[in-house]
Amino acid sequence: MTLALLFPGQGSQSVGMGAALADAFPSAREVFAEVDDALGQKLSMLMREGPEDQLTLTENAQPALMAVSLAAIRALGAEFGVDVSRAGFVAGHSLGEYSALAAAGALSIGDTARLLKLRGQAMQRAVPVGQGAMASLIGPKTDLALAEAAAVAGAEVGVCVVANDNNAGNIVISGEKGAVDRAIEKAKELGARAIPLNVSAPFHCPLMQPAADEMAVALADAKIVAPLVPVVANVTARPESDPEAIRRLLVEQVTGRVRWRESMEWLATEGAVTRFAEVGSGKVLTGMAKRIAPDVESMPLNTPEDLEAFAKGL
């Protein structure tokens, strides 16, 4: 069996996430305390109690989602003797790539929390609220070719690109609001449904270049070591273990496309993965995995019961 551990991205957050892990495992509580200390913020209290609008803020959601994922990883090791090295690969969706790197030991938890806090703030600063937009193109006719055609139509008005190639039937576009509105019209003409997303900024598009510049400075000073297992990078959909390449790819990721479908296809074929386990809050990536690689077993790991069953099944 070849295992790949997957780490969720923004949108998987919810009030109360991680509480069951903290209540059950001292090792999980240690992770939440480390993140609180690194940020000088009671993020764990915000995660447990809300309010939801504060947790949803990009600068809070990003480190919070990482904290839940790493609490689950720490508990797997401390309570059940399952180390990340049991996996063949790790991968994370957008901010989840940072969680994957921390889980694989390439980044410390404290540094990861601080980098994600800055990443969220920098992304918010990059584009004034209301000037950017994102939309999800969904439905059986939605594939990359349709999404690219819609983005091209939008680009006649302003910046508009494919931001997240999640899976067939679920592709996200991002850019200037007027351009995304035009792309939505084109997508509907081509037979897709289009849903504007309630996001605070247009992620993974060229408008994020100021945020990429900020992250380049921060990542230049970050200590990154070779991960215990290869990390499949969002922007290349291929495994990477070289610290300097990881540093460069994390900068490119801010403006670049999240090639999740390609990443999962590579893991299921070239990587010969037979089991996907989504570590952290929610089940979004588990659902995507089942659509992209239906022959590969997929499961979420976000409750104490999930961790116990997973460990027993290895």
Rank of each mutant, 00 (worst) to 15 (best):
L107P: 13
F80T: 05
L101Y: 13
L137G: 00
G110Y: 05
A145T: 11
A122C: 03
L95A: 04
S108D: 01
Q121A: 13
L146K: 06
K117F: 14
L95F: 10
A103Q: 02
A135K: 10
F80Q: 05
V84F: 01
Q124H: 04
D83W: 13
E148T: 10
M123P: 07
G77E: 15
V68L: 12
Q124F: 06
A75E: 00
T142A: 12
S85F: 10
A133N: 06
F80G: 03
A100G: 08
S69F: 13
E97M: 14
L116V: 09
S99V: 04
F80N: 01
F89G: 09
A78Y: 00
S108R: 07
A72S: 06
L115Q: 05
G88W: 07
L107N: 02
V129Q: 15
I73E: 07
A106M: 08
A78N: 10
A149H: 11
E79W: 02
L76M: 12
A126E: 00
V90C: 12
G81R: 03
A75V: 03
M123T: 06
P128K: 14
A104C: 14
L70E: 00
E148N: 06
G77L: 11
A75P: 11
D143G: 15
G120V: 08
G96E: 07
G77D: 13
V68P: 03
S99T: 04
G139V: 03
D143L: 14
Q124C: 05
M123C: 04
Q121M: 12
Y98Q: 00
E97K: 11
G110C: 00
A71L: 02
E148R: 15
L118F: 08
E97A: 12
S69P: 15
V129K: 15
T112N: 00
S85P: 13
M134R: 06
D111A: 11
A91D: 01
G105N: 09
F89L: 04
A147L: 14
G130L: 15
F89C: 03
R74K: 15
S136G: 14
F80R: 05
G88C: 03
G110E: 15
L115S: 10
L144V: 00
